[in-house]
Amino acid sequence: MAVFGPKANLAVNAALVGAGGLFLTLLLMIWVVPVSGYNTLERYVPVQPVPFSHKHHVSGLGLDCRYCHATVEVSQNAGMPATKVCMTCHSQIWTNAALLAPVRQSLAEDKSLRWTRVYTLPDYVYFDHSIHIAKGVGCTECHGPIGDMPLTWKATTLYMSWCLSCHRNPAPHLRPLNDVFDPHWRRSPETPSGAQLMAAYHIHPKTLSDCGVCHR
């Protein structure tokens, strides 16, 4: 009598294919899923109480970022506009638009609009907008083509490796201070080189990737 029956080959093959499949699935789970947009929420557009368009207000109308995000130069937080900032114009323009009903309601009831956060950092990361602005990091370096977004989406993974890619080599991400808020800025032949800007801003990459720069 044979030790292995006629179905033994099938069982071994099935086990081998199964093990291979399991191995590939594990690889996928470990290396592909974490960096996929499904996990990082990259390009994800959260639902907002009002479908605010940066494309219309920034590229179309030419409003400066700081018109609404007024504390971005002086505070860690860029600042979300109070309802009164919206109503500066919308008390006179589009006063009956259904889309803006939540804004009018917010003003009438004296209750803040609760926008959905697009960029979330873990609580152990201490990001500060003002220092990045002061050192010539443009808004679009992290916020992507924000001036062309009809609805706001997350343009980066916000992974620590992504933060470090710039903290270790800041030069390609710097621009002259006058261009920081220009969402369509492109490097031109007249632009000072990254190395020149690093020197001008006193940026020292050696200490820029120390733990304590972002974690306390």
């Binding site: 109308l61 030419g62 409003l63 400066d64 700081r66 018109y67 114009c89 006179q92």
Partner: peptide
Amino acid sequence: IYCTPCHSLIGDGDGMIVHRGF
């Protein structure tokens, strides 16, 4: 930043928002 939307870059009151009906 804060004034040109209505008052315009030269302050003549012909800003972009005024063109939109303000």
